[in-house]
Simulated assay, not measured.
Amino acid sequence: MNKTGTAVILCGGKSSRMGFDKSKIEIEGKYLIELIAKKLETIFDEVVLVAEKKDKFKKLKYTVLEDLKKEYGPAGGMYTGLKYANSKYVFFMACDMPIVNLEYIKYMMKIAEESDCDCVLPRNGKWIEPMYAFYSKDLIKDFEKGIDNNNLLLYDIIKSSRIHYIPEEVTRSYSKDLEMFVNLNYVKDLEILKKIY
């Protein structure tokens, strides 16, 4: 398959509930983000990490971008990723989401490339999954405005844009239990990794 576009793994966050930096979770001597990135690079031209400091992952082969807008949570990291990316659409996921569903990501990528939208977002019941989604560089100014106004809720930033929602039933056809949206928030959640790796 032809690889295209940029995938960004957001490696910020305070990790207060976990008690240590989630971006440095290790599995058999490798960071979880390395395992995530290795899967993503099978379908993307480039995979980059966004962190609060450029030298955070010096030993990794992946490009590490330093947050252009520090202390603004995912909004700041996504702004940085969109500013950097060469491709129009950028796939974002968080460093504490251990399950990479390549077929579903390719499905979203196809929608992004073939429809005239600003982002492709999965629905999950009443909610959306903004951290497993595609965003267009056309949203850079929206993110900048949200950050400048200290309005950091992702949905508030993008709600007036052209959003392509993926119905939950479609997502479940790729992932019956929606497991790719799982986050590792607490130490007990690390048990999930034993099932995956």
Rank of each mutant, 00 (worst) to 15 (best):
D138V: 07
A7S: 11
D96H: 06
K106V: 05
N101M: 06
D138A: 09
V120G: 00
E114Y: 05
T171L: 08
L152T: 07
S15A: 14
Y72A: 12
M78N: 07
L65S: 04
C117W: 07
Y62Q: 05
K195I: 09
Y89V: 00
M93I: 11
L68D: 10
G29D: 07
T171P: 02
L121F: 00
I128P: 03
Y132W: 09
L82W: 01
T6I: 10
K126M: 12
I27W: 02
K24I: 00
L154M: 11
D148S: 14
F181N: 00
E28T: 10
D156A: 09
A75H: 03
I33P: 01
P74S: 15
L190N: 01
K58H: 11
V187M: 14
K53P: 03
L65R: 06
Y79A: 03
K145E: 12
M180Q: 15
K110F: 10
I196Y: 12
N150M: 13
K3N: 09
G19W: 02
A85Q: 07
K61S: 14
K145M: 09
D142W: 04
V182A: 14
D156W: 05
T80N: 00
K176S: 13
I9A: 01
Y174W: 07
K14V: 13
S173M: 14
I147Q: 00
D116Q: 11
G29H: 04
D67F: 09
Y135E: 02
I158A: 02
E46L: 04
I147F: 06
E169T: 11
I158D: 05
M93V: 06
K59F: 13
S175G: 12
V100L: 08
K137Q: 12
S160C: 10
R123V: 05
L178C: 09
H164Q: 13
Y132H: 03
K30L: 11
N124R: 13
D189T: 04
G77Q: 07
S115V: 11
F44P: 02
G81M: 03
